[in-house]
Simulated scan of single mutants.
Amino acid sequence: MRLLGTAAVITGAGRGQGAATAALFAAEGASVVVGDIDLDAATRTAKTVADAGGTAIAVHADVSTANGAEALIEAASENFGRLDALVNNAGVALFKQIEDITEEEWDRVVDIDLKSVFLTCRAAIPLMRATGGGSVVNVASAAAMKPIRLQTAYAAAKAGVVQFTRALSLDVGGYGIRANCVCPGPIDTEMLHASLSELASPYDASRLPLGRIGKPAEVGAVSLFLCSPEASYMTGAVLTVDGGTSVGTR
């Protein structure tokens, strides 16, 4: 087991990529704090982990607020006595013409997709330092590098996540803490399908280099790798998990 004896916090873990990531981490021996703004969803994920023989607790948290971010880190400290891995997976999408985006909508996307990453990292770093180091994985998006139409708010926030991660790696490396970024492309999640519904247009996955939409566990597996001993000399890296979307279409 690659994460035996460790503790992890995963945000947005009530469904989709977050839930898959929580299951993978627990299967590799980590005790997991399942954070989500939807407590029922977080509880379902924690139960799935427990039913499979793993250890997980569900915590209600709005990570776009300092109180919510701090609650997740406190849960790791109080229940597991340490924090070795933080996966910032929580996020929302928005597809709108720039002139139609309200200030409230812009703030919501930036708060959940970018500000939350700052808040959780700010809360987590002291505990990681106290327990000898750790690994931060921030989930951005392929849209950070190659956006599609109507993604101004989402693409800007996710691009911020990429550069935040790179800057963070410089600040915390001396504490034995690594910070890396994962940029998923189209993944089979509720958020993707809701976004496609907003766009009211079909998505032709056959045009992607790999010819299909990705699976949540395929993103989770990369986060797992980055938090494992195999990635011990990786920090400040940005890994694209998008079936080749950022390269082009065929």
Rank of each mutant, 00 (worst) to 15 (best):
A56R: 06
L3A: 02
V92G: 10
L86G: 06
V247F: 12
E78R: 15
A155S: 11
R129K: 14
A130E: 14
S197M: 03
T249F: 13
M191Q: 15
L224N: 02
T48F: 03
T6M: 13
A124T: 04
L72R: 09
A130W: 00
F95L: 07
V63N: 13
G236M: 01
E218L: 10
S135T: 06
R122P: 09
C183H: 09
V109R: 02
A156H: 00
H193N: 06
C181H: 08
A85K: 08
L94R: 10
Q97D: 15
F25M: 01
F118R: 05
G12D: 07
H193V: 00
E218G: 08
V161G: 10
C227S: 12
T249P: 00
E104Y: 01
I101G: 12
S228R: 05
A124D: 07
D51H: 11
D111F: 08
E218D: 08
G132V: 03
T165D: 01
A56Q: 03
I148V: 13
A153F: 09
I177D: 09
E105R: 05
A194H: 02
A85S: 14
M145P: 00
L24Y: 10
R2C: 01
M234L: 15
R212D: 00
Q17V: 15
F95V: 01
G173A: 15
R129Q: 13
G5D: 09
N79P: 06
R122G: 07
S223D: 05
E104D: 14
V161F: 11
V34L: 11
G54S: 08
L119E: 06
A46W: 08
G14K: 05
V9N: 10
Q163H: 14
A50F: 02
P147T: 00
A167E: 00
S197K: 14
T189Q: 04
E230Y: 01
T6C: 07
S169I: 01
A194I: 00
S195V: 05
D36G: 03
V241T: 02
E198Y: 00
A85M: 14
E190F: 02
V109I: 10
A85I: 15
V247S: 11
A93W: 13
Q17H: 06
D40S: 15
P184Y: 07
T235A: 05
T152Y: 02
A8W: 10
M234R: 01
T249N: 03
Q17K: 06
V87P: 10
K146H: 01
T245R: 13
A20I: 07
N88E: 13
A93P: 00
P186T: 04
A90W: 09
G244I: 11
T189D: 04
A194M: 04
I10P: 13
T249Y: 14
F164E: 01
L4T: 14
